[in-house]
Nucleic acid binder design. Structure first.
Lengths: 163, 163
DNA sequence: CCAAATTAGTTGCAAATGATACTAATTTCC
DNA sequence: GGAAATTAGTATCATTTGCAACTAATTTGG
């Protein structure tokens, strides 16, 4: 049982509005777009700068590499976000004593205070987006997204393994 | 009952990996990225060119405006995609007889044959992504995404209505 | 212990994207 | 009937992004 299409199981017609990658993309852009506009307008932060701040908000000093992993961002994107944040003195970089190639990044007090200000707003935005969803539905959504995430990683690993 | 945070209902801490807009964005990028790479490599199509082809695959000649609505793409993006597709002779544009500002766009035979070739692959990619999901789970996922879509539209309409 | 390979992070350049302004055709409505 | 406002689509320019090449430090393995 391959699940592959044949005479008995024809491939259903493609309808863009029903196509999962399309729907994910539109929903994600709508959701992120709303909030990104707000970050930008109120704090002058790009969505990537915000992501970096979000992971640094925990208080630990971590390397750019660790930021890449925690944010699913490319190292170039992280590098640029860090440069912008450092220029505004929202983060500080100290060369790691154990590896002089790497820098340990942490929020400055100003960075931390921006985090403290945005974090609750971010949670409100999320809540607002999920208004009308029951706790059970939120749980389902989370679980389904996790599985899609995992599945996409698997497919990427097999270099597509795609048709 | 505002749902707003107070002493009794504190705002939960922000954890990026649990944050819905972030998760949506990552999942969407992973899913689209996989498939977009395949469009590009095999057919030289950008994701937008593909979306345009997908809506034209139905066979109707429609205006760029209608394509915008059907694909959730910006009119500039549609214009560029159409230019690229027209250069490759995958679409044809005829001035609309009823409105000389608008052009009715349709696939050429070559365009149609590309659609016919990709559409089943696209369905396979989707199936592959959803491998392991029960019919019920797929239905749930679809419903939840629809509601998020709708909700994001509502929020955008109230200019954010966001905090 | 040292040459080769790997890793951290940055930079430079080409291509993609987005915002704005523009042209041309059409509608509105006085 | 025609001036003003609207709409379809395109062009322009600044910014962002993505890729590949690069520097510097570290690890590997012979």
């Amino acid at each position: 049982m391959t699940g592959r299409a044949d005479r008995a199981n024809p491939v259903p017609a493609l309808v863009l509005s029903e196509y999962l990658p399309y729907r994910l993309s539109v929903v994600s852009n709508k959701a992120s777009g709303l909030i990104a506009r707000a970050y930008q307008a109120r704090f002058g932060l790009s969505i990537w700068e915000w992501r970096v701040i979000a992971v640094l908000g925990g208080g630990e000093a971590i390397t750019a590499q660790a930021i890449c992993e925690a944010t699913a961002m490319d190292k170039v994107t992280v590098s640029r976000a860090l440069r912008a944040l450092a220029e505004r003195a929202l983060v500080r970089r100290r060369t790691s004593p154990s590896d002089k190639r790497a820098a340990l990044v942490s929020l400055t007090p100003e960075g931390q205070s921006i985090f403290d200000e945005i974090a609750p707003l971010a949670m409100e935005w999320e809540r607002s987006l999920l208004e009308g969803f029951s706790a059970e539905e939120k749980r389902q959504l989370g679980g389904l997204l996790d599985r899609l995430w995992q599945r996409a990683d698997e497919l990427a690993r097999n270099d597509g393994g795609l048709p």
